[in-house]
Write a protein that binds this DNA or RNA. Sequence first.
DNA 1: CCTACCGATCGGTAGG
DNA 2: CCTACCGATCGGTAGG
Lengths: 225, 225
Amino acid sequence: MRVETSDSPASAPLRRARGRPRKTVHERDDGNRRQELLRAAARLFRQQGFGATSTRDIATAAGMRSGSPFYHFENKEALLAAVMLEGMQSALQRQAAAMQAAVAQAAAQARTLSARECLQVLVRSHFEVLLGPDSDFIPVMLYEWRSLSSEQRSEINRLKGDYEAVWVPVLKALHAAGELQGEPGLARMLLFGALNWSVQWFDAARQATLDDLSECVMQLFLKRS
Amino acid sequence: MRVETSDSPASAPLRRARGRPRKTVHERDDGNRRQELLRAAARLFRQQGFGATSTRDIATAAGMRSGSPFYHFENKEALLAAVMLEGMQSALQRQAAAMQAAVAQAAAQARTLSARECLQVLVRSHFEVLLGPDSDFIPVMLYEWRSLSSEQRSEINRLKGDYEAVWVPVLKALHAAGELQGEPGLARMLLFGALNWSVQWFDAARQATLDDLSECVMQLFLKRS
DNA sequence: CCTACCGATCGGTAGG
DNA sequence: CCTACCGATCGGTAGG
């Protein structure tokens, strides 16, 4: 479920009445402005890199003055970490939604999903996270990892672990069935590489659809059983 | 195994015999000092990113003062471009050497290389370029591409084209034989992604060898024929 | 969230 | 390649 950031008149009254904020917490209730900062930061970090993007660039892109991002985030690194966190949460939600929908559809036909079908769903969902709408957050996480402090890495690493954990039994089943070959640990990393690299070359305007891409992955990686 | 760019082989022992400390002045040995700058820049650009690495960091790592890199390179961007150029030239040399050695070995047995064997050689050579000794240059090229000006990109793009051109007929033959499936253009990009992503996770100290990795790639991507 | 501002650092240069 | 230096920009802060 994406957070709506475009100014809808209905959402304004829903926010807390003006007044003194709780001083201890930085992340106040003004989700809207904060969200605009996150989106601007994600876009600029992706286009230019973390090191080449100034907090002034981000402020300007979000329609603020140069000091204002530090009202929402402690420092530039915390902004990067927030972008990555948002990206992972969104990715986990999309992954879970895609799996649940597929399971429900199979159940309606009184059958279960094959491992092959599971992989298809995961691959397709992964491409959507990488290349679909609002897809700056995860590429930033993938390609700016080294700019994070080690403290911030651990929190996001937990979510990455959750995300990958869904794949493991699927890949294991395919390997057991002989449909996926090569040492499973290495094979998993190679597969993720094939998918993640797509952010470097995929151009939705000129090339294949995400369905084409997913189909190619299935054909390329899986053996006939 | 490093490529000497402008040094004569005789000059290295000469300097060493004098035991000259690096800061001694007025010896013109541009090739060597330039090479030290390139190596330091490659390492730092890879570790920290282009934007997060100052020219002072690089100068210090090469044993110079802050202004000295600009004696060798016009500006910071030109230094980045030089790192990438060096990486691609080295990669092309290694690729050509690996292919020639394999072809010669097959010829000694009065036979030709199969497409499968060609791919094996290319994959193994690619992993060496990415993960072997002196392997900072190509990862910098892969992950700092956006920091290059468009002028500098075109020169390096030519070399990238040369590098990929060697793969195309091999992949085409495997596709024709049914050993490699999926739309060939997409399949090539997915394959490169699987390989290139390895720089993000491979740890030579704890994990498999480059031979293990190459074997896994072959098993994962190729069908039995 | 803005105004006004600061100390630090950066890429780069002049001259030897 | 070093010394000495500069203008610009950066991350970040005080106070309202």
